[in-house]
Amino acid sequence: MATAVKQKSDVILQYLRPHKKMPSVWCAGCGNGIIMSAIIRAVDKLGYSKDEVVMVSGIGCSSRMPIYLDFNALHTTHGRALGFATGVKFARPDLKVIVITGDGDALAIGGNHFIHACRRNIDITTILINNAIYGMTGGQGSPATPSGAFSTTTPYGNVEKHFEPCELARAAGATYVGRTTVYHATQMEKMIAGGLAHSGFAFIEAISNCQTYFGRLNRKGDAVAMIKSFKENAVMLGKAKKMSEEELEGKIVIGTLYRTEKTEFCDEYQRVIDSLQGGK
């Protein structure tokens, strides 16, 4: 057991950026760290070299992740990660592109890029860290903040409705869609590996805890309490299918929700290039 734990942390250390002065900007207990290690394990399992991985992010607590990892890092502007990532992937289809984005980053300011990246089915694995709030700017409401929930900009409870990111992704054309939580670290690792191995746009919603703002403002307790609540409220997809809408109220359905094969954007374009050049 002890050696297994040691081996695990050795793997993590291998992928942390050398010379980077830790600690990170993240609060102790923030779910971002759990997600980061799941990504590392997934990449390690797939045997990708660090040189071929590009991690692109926008702006937010979650989007700081590429700074800490020893991949090619592209920390961009708020909401625009998928625009930059599209440029990287289309210019260099041989690279493995991972996008890290927050619920504000992807669903508010970056909503347009998000739906169009899904629509193109470009081979990018996007991990949306959904903590239901704006962490970096201090706890304002996001498009994922549930109705009635408190944030610094919904001081009387949120009067808006929230987005369901996975439904949005599927409707927009993503070909691999999954949801998991920071409690389900092993499932998360497998889901990310599945997304990376999938040719096309893979979207993973990682439900995470921001105890500092969402937790505090909504009396959800500390990091441990929040992560425990994810465990208690999570329902595996298979089981959820047999449950009624009322029974599913307040639950988090986890698992690979949707998967299909469709032609990938860069491949399709390459076919155009080949046909033009072959026709000469």
Binding site: G83, T86, G87, V88, F90, A91, N112
Partner: peptide
């Protein structure tokens, strides 16, 4: 998105 993709492609 256009200028974002251009910058990404250039860095790539």
């Amino acid at each position: 998105g256009s200028i974002a993709a251009v910058v990404g492609a250039s860095i790539a």
